[in-house]
Design a binder for these strands. Structure first.
Lengths: 198, 198, 198, 198
DNA sequence: AATGAATGAGAGTTCATTCAT
DNA sequence: AATGAATGAACTCTCATTCAT
């Protein structure tokens, strides 16, 4: 799916600029001009590389969710035990106030769109599937280790884990207080543990 | 509190029209014209009653969250036991596919804005405070009854309960499948119970 | 021409309010609402009495110029000598900073319109004719008294006298300095005297 | 003073179109669309070059008054004698019915605004200062030559000269008769001469 | 006689998109 | 490959006017 080999780097640069602009300004205020400004290119370039504003945003969601998935996947795989994996997953989902804020601001914009527009929903679905894959991996290993309840069905439990993560981070985002980040992370971890434990 | 000389009823009519329009079309596509169309009034009337598009939206969030809070509060208070209250709270938060879809679509739009714009954040904070009040009521009663863990601190536990509710409903919304509504509700209930139980 | 006997007083009230509003806000910013606010009546009343916004303004110019003409006419007729009449005329045209400012602001708005719209031009022409009548009266008396040049033809000299008055007051208005009012009045008087003297 | 990257020529084209549109239609009737139509560009271009309608008008007044000043200045400097300079100044201020009409229509609109809005007043003040400079030059030379009264103080006399010019041209404009242009010019010249003569 | 709710045409402005260079 | 001038559709907002009460 490498459409523009030569200029793949510039596409990344524009996507990252779009991410920054979107995070700062929000959906209604972001324009091709502000994206171009953040990328330090001309307005025409954004069009040249993506064809339309909509295409930039779709690809941004794709890129963002893929990056998050990869990061979380990698973090979990480094750990040998279920407990370690779960801890790594939550740590990965709560990298810190700055990163969580910029990502969740943008992600909420996308979720709002995804609730109405299929193309965004499909991309988000792939993200959710990846999250479920990670959760399932952790859960089944924990069941084998005997630390998680055997009765839990991965297909129904996995979404709840992501629900708790997203729900906690949204709550934190709305408090707008960096100091509380650690507490929300801890609350999230405790909640997930209680849901999974024997 | 008689703030408006102008017919309070027409204001409600316009707010409800705005809710419908926003739910259908989303933030970027909703215009004063589409709101007016849904309310079956002229474009000028919306301005006449609210002064600006922004004012309509702010008041819509206020109205929506107040309505939800009142409904949940009432449902919980009808029940005498902690178990009954918790069930009533979750039932109230999961009234059904149609209602949940229309509300959460709009609510996600507002959350995205609230992450950047103080006036929306403040309104949402009042909503969260009401949710926390309900959760605390349920939790402390359950602790007295002995069905919930005594060690749980209301201040840190309450937000997690709403996080699970919102998280589960967002997951469901993204699946876009009415059939799954009951299952997500059940998962949510189970998760909250596990978080609270002794 | 007394169209509404009973309510002639309210018409005056509205016209005066329109004058105040226009003087304060200028042509582009004055609305029926601001006129109604100044008159302390409802917006509908202004329409009811005048039929349209344009009609208010046309009648305002008529009323204003008639009032000025009458005042100047009266002042001049009180004086027996040509010198006294001229002094009275200039005094009457320079009643003071506050009055000159409010009138000339509005009058400039009307002159701008009069340069394009016949109905305003005709009203202004009647005003100019009255000014010319006064000037002619002063001039011919002065010629009889031997203090003004016999060679001056009233028809060509009269407009110049008003030109000097208007020109000086516009210059003063643009300086926006109340302190200079007396100096501009003196300059105006001197200039007119030099134009008329033997 | 290279303030604009965008084609300076196109800016001039739009300013001239704005002048034509304003002269024809007047302040209340001139819109970005009519300006764009006169300039034979799209409505968006006017915004693109000036940022706002207000900015077009402010720059128009600046451009117009600068042009008039330059023209009058040049005309006066060509003449060696005070009498010649004065004649050249008046000739320059009375270029003919068509030019005087279009300029004074627009200028009256600006004077009305200048009486309330500082930015317009400041621009007009610069114009008045230039007029005063010219008048002072003519006056002091005439005093040296012995044809103008030695007692005249330039600072108080100069504004009166412009007052007579503006006053006469406004009187002429209100008559709306091209035939009278020459007579008003003559009257103006005579009046100024009488004010200055020994 | 008086009100002000309702209308909708039209204003200024924004911005994705196009395209000549 | 890159630019930014140009376009015009669509937006929010204003306001004279109408009209039921």
């Amino acid at each position: 799916m490498v459409r523009y080999k030569k200029s793949e780097e510039k596409r990344k640069q524009i996507l990252f600029a779009a991410f920054q602009a979107l995070s700062e300004l929000g959906y209604d205020s972001v324009t091709l001009q502000t994206i171009a400004d953040h990328a330090e290119v001309s307005k025409g370039v954004v069009h040249y590389y993506f064809g339309s504003k909509e295409a930039v945003l779709v690809e941004l969601l794709e890129w963002l969710t893929a990056k998050i998935s990869a990061k979380e996947q990698a973090a979990v795989q480094e750990q040998p035990t279920a407990a370690g994996k779960l801890k790594a997953y939550i740590d990965s989902a709560f990298p810190g106030p700055a990163k969580n804020r910029s990502f969740y601001r943008v992600y909420l914009d996308f979720l709002a769109r995804a609730s109405r527009i299929p193309v965004y929903r499909e991309i988000n679905q792939r993200f959710y599937d990846n999250c479920a894959r990670i959760s399932t991996e952790v859960l089944t290993l924990g069941q084998k280790e005997g630390i998680f309840a055997k009765a839990l069905i991965p297909d129904t439990t996995a979404p709840v884990i992501r629900a708790i993560i997203d729900g906690c981070l949204i709550q934190w985002l709305m408090k707008d207080d960096d100091e509380l980040h650690a507490a929300y992370k801890e609350s999230c971890y405790e909640a997930v543990m209680k849901v999974l434990r024997v």
